[in-house]
Design a binder for these strands. Structure first.
Lengths: 347, 347
DNA sequence: GTCACGGATTTTGACGTTAATAAGATGCAG
DNA sequence: CTGCATCTTATTAACGTCAAAATCCGTGAC
């Protein structure tokens, strides 16, 4: 199986074994067409036999390219419900591995200056091939920094500055929220409120737009709306306000599961039943959404597709593919659970 | 600020700038004591001025050591409440960065054979310095593989085989569960049930032991116990059984937040109030625990300490530190919320 | 039979770093 | 003033890989 105990097998050893020069082995591995079929076969057999794997450090040194893709993790805020970044990281890593890349993690304290410094350091030190950004926003310093360095990158989150040159993959929050709104409207709700984020948030604005579109499509009023921080407590208070209104909401479409869970808490405090009395929807399909009683209707992001697409884009970029910047907008999937359905709460 | 636009700065350039040889620059950076103070100062100024960062690929090639630590991500199971691995990854990466390492992610489909293959490939290709394992279990193939290759590693999760040679960091599930049990006993509960995992799970067994110890310390009966899969549905059903008993439980101590959420669902179905009617506790302090109503009493794992300790251990290992394998058992912290307190549910 | 062509293979050198070793400078004892 | 130890700096070579250039060899044209 593994005839070599340790002592990494190198090109030269394979070459000796196959009775050719090191360069020919290199060619057999990287440019098969340059090598005569018979020789190639013999070499590949040797590679197999000896368990040769090219040394990436040497390759990186020689080629100035490491097949490393960098991604910066961020603290898992425990007051948020969403596992999105965890799932994203897994999906991204799986896609990277499939395409022959490795993911290297970057660490920086909060603040884009720190982050940019960390990127630059990593770049100098390791010749990473590309970066993946997440949670981009308007006037994102990271984008301009990476662009000014000429480093390939792709982002999970569209380029909000109308920057056509950036490859990105995003999930259509507007379409998702509209779908949620139309879903509750289809259950007969006419007073549909929206609890979202402040206007500074591009993502929040998109989701609010979706709710507006959903309401307008059915000629429903859109006076019940709140723009609050993404915390459970903020959602709870906003829900109370909308239920205290003279013409209270019978459905609340939220910009996140966290906010929706705040709504559920408010309903609980008022002795109202989610679904039966007030329909509630969230966004992100966090684990919590499936675990609360009744289950929370929410929007699921096709995160594995996002990962694959980003790697795909980076692959194109690195290959110098002419049809360069790709822009991919994916539809989230509405997951209907008890919180938006009338009748006895079901799971 | 950055006088060099791109074109990585190398040792030789710094050397030229400072009027010394490349080796002297290398020494100034890595072995300051070998260089005369005045020269050192001049060189470090040049390093600063030119923004020199050592190229890790070249270093890895030369030294056969990359300052890379590998960690395998696993799929984020969306039916689980816990963000533990997400938080862990962040903590580990932060600690690694602080100590001058980088985290490289490893991908493998489920199954320890795949995982071991992935480890071996990574090792051959990148000369990673060390591995971090998580969720170790009895007869863990990964441990024997890594040991047989002579690769340094440390694990989050103790070595269940009584293997003294492995460095590990773990959280004391037994002490945690005992604390939870004693906490509900202190609220006056006398019929305390336990919903945990099957005996194959070492972690589950530890937690069950903690409950047993807590009960025995107060001479309470221990007949109400269940060993089930870690799903919400299993927790729900187990709770129903224990509440259908002729002498039903008034408190349920669970091995995970997921199970505890199943219990909450069962209570909801029965019209019982968590805390007031039946005390419930979980384990892991998942985001969900803080977000449900009432909040779920649970045990918080000091995950940042785990990360730092693991990197510390690896650092020692790599330094060839003689006081080699470190074993660190940390206490989880009991977070008391409404689900285990009598009276009106509070948050 | 010579020569040009082209495919297959090898040689050479460089990527940036550092261990090992050599060389140079300084000081001090004899 | 010679010789030797000490401290500092420089030279050499190697880590494994691969692009570029050089070499080799067989084919076919003239």
């Amino acid at each position: 199986m593994a005839p070599v105990p340790h002592g990494h097998v190198t090109l030269v050893q394979v070459a000796r074994w196959a009775g050719v020069s090191a360069q020919t082995v290199s060619n057999a591995v990287n440019n098969p067409e340059r090598v005569a079929p018979a020789t190639r076969e013999r070499i590949l057999a040797a590679v197999e036999e000896l368990g040769y794997e090219p040394n990436l450090s040497a390759r990186a040194l020689r080629n100035r390219s490491s097949s490393l893709i960098a991604f910066k993790t961020r603290p898992a805020r425990t007051d948020k419900a969403s596992l999105l970044m965890d799932e994203f990281l897994y999906a991204l890593n799986a896609a990277a591995a499939e395409a022959g890349y490795h993911l290297i993690l970057c660490h920086a304290e909060d603040g884009s200056a720190n982050e940019i410094k960390a990127y630059r350091d990593l770049l100098k030190k390791t010749s990473v091939d590309a970066f993946v950004l997440a949670e981009t926003h308007r006037n994102d310093d990271r984008v301009s920094a990476l662009r000014s360095w000429g480093v390939p990158f792709a982002s999970f989150g569209r380029s909000w500055d109308g920057d056509e040159a950036t490859s990105w993959v995003d999930v259509d929050g507007r379409a998702g929220t509209r779908a949620a709104t139309e879903h509750v409207a289809a259950q007969g709700h006419r007073r549909i409120g929206h609890i979202g984020w402040p206007a500074e948030s591009e993502i929040g604005s998109e989701r609010r737009e979706g709710w507006l579109e959903g309401c307008r499509g059915r000629e429903l009023e859109t006076d019940l709306q709140a723009a609050v921080a993404d915390t459970l407590e903020a959602g709870r208070q906003a829900a109370h306000r909308m239920l205290d209104s003279s013409r209270p909401a019978t459905a609340l479409v939220c910009a996140s599961d966290t906010l929706a869970l705040g709504v559920l808490r408010a309903l609980h405090e008022r002795g109202l039943r989610p679904g039966a009395d007030v329909a509630v929807t969230g966004f992100d399909d966090s684990p919590t959404a499936a675990l609360v009683s009744p289950g929370l209707t929410t929007l699921h992001q096709p995160i594995d597709v996002v990962g694959r697409q980003l790697i795909q884009s980076i692959d194109n970029l690195l290959a110098g593919d002419p049809r360069d910047p790709q822009h991919v907008l994916l539809e989230p999937e509405l997951i209907v659970r008890g919180s938006s359905l009338p009748g006895p709460p079901r799971q």
